[in-house]
């Protein structure tokens, strides 16, 4: 009887803990900040396509639609609106519509609707360029777009919020269970990304030897700031390489311990900030930092962002 009762208690406790973890309503500040930043990145990423739209997305660009479909295995579930439209004017219409959607998502206008449209459009672009021109930025963009659909991403730091204030709403943005669920999904998705990124690096001889950082900074095509002075600092190269791989492998544990979380967050800023500064991957580096912000408590976000957001809101509402 004792064992059965203990097991029953364990299951009940685990179910309660699971419920609290996923469904406790939370202040949507962190979620809203991620909408603002990820929406900005989605807008910028797609704005840049405008500079060579037909070459990358047109039916007869660098890689034809037929070729891409063939590379993707002709699967029905790999879909893109750009597989079905051929006329340049139609591609431009979709593109301009997408830019409007991503801009609205960034500023938080009709947030719930633009989040859904943003996801569909982000996947459409990404599938058209995979393989070919895709990289980690597109994976992160689509991940954000997916989870932004799930909660009230425009509850704070948005034109939707300012509109509600202008309409006379005085209540604070309510705590939201779906915002918590979306943030949890971003957090766990990020843990899976880092785990497999670390496991893949374990197979690399240069990661094992502690020299991989050198081969990253010695890559001329990636280089945006010269870091070849590291040639004189083999211990620093080794240390940074080993820290990177251990941090990625143990990211999940480091992030869920409140004492190691700030350290882990700072490592994320240094690693991804380094990629942005020295390897020219500013967009990818920033996007990974944005994803790490999902671990920042809403109260901290409000302490950082509310003063600025309040000033912007005052300007837009005429001080009301």
């Amino acid at each position: 009887m004792g064992m059965i009762k203990d097991t029953r208690d364990y299951v009940a406790d685990a179910w309660q803990a699971w419920n609290r973890f996923w469904f406790t309503p939370t202040d949507p500040a962190t979620f809203s900040l991620i909408r603002l930043l990820a929406g900005g990145m989605l807008f910028y990423t797609h704005l840049v396509w405008s500079l060579d739209l037909q070459a990358f997305l047109g039916p007869n660009g660098w890689l034809s639609v037929d070729f891409i479909r063939q590379m993707q295995g002709e699967q029905w579930s790999v879909w893109s609106v750009f597989f079905w439209i051929e006329q340049p004017w139609a591609i431009w219409c979709v593109h301009i519509f997408a830019l409007v959607v991503f801009f609205c998502l960034m500023v938080g206008l009709f947030s719930r609707s633009t989040a859904v449209l943003g996801f569909l459009l982000a996947v459409s672009y990404a599938q058209r360029i995979s393989p070919g021109a895709f990289f980690g930025l597109d994976k992160l963009n689509c991940m954000f777009a997916l989870y932004l659909m799930l909660g009230p991403c425009g509850a704070r730091y948005s034109l939707d919020r300012i509109w509600r204030l202008r309409q006379g709403e005085t209540n604070d943005a309510p705590a939201s269970a779906s915002a918590n669920m979306a943030i949890r999904l971003i957090q766990l998705h990020l843990c899976i990304i880092y785990l497999f990124s670390g496991l893949a690096k374990l197979l690399g001889e240069n990661w094992q030897a502690g020299t991989a950082l050198w081969w990253a900074v010695a890559n001329f095509e990636y280089q945006s700031l010269d870091a070849t002075w590291l040639a004189d600092w083999p211990m620093l190269i080794g240390l940074a390489t080993h820290v990177t791989i251990f941090w990625e492998l143990f990211y999940v544990g480091l992030m869920w311990n409140r004492f190691t979380r700030p350290i882990s967050l700072w490592i994320a800023v240094i690693v991804h900030g380094g990629i942005a500064l020295f390897m020219g991957m500013i967009t990818f580096g920033l996007t990974m930092i944005f994803a790490n912000l999902s671990f920042v408590a809403p109260s901290t976000v409000r302490r950082w962002v509310d003063p600025l957001a309040g000033r912007v809101a005052s300007m837009l509402t005429g001080g009301k």
Partner: peptide, 10 residues
């Protein structure tokens, strides 16, 4: 996706 950033080796 595989998330093999800079892996197995740069």
């Amino acid at each position: 996706h595989g998330y093999q950033f800079f892996a197995p080796d740069p």
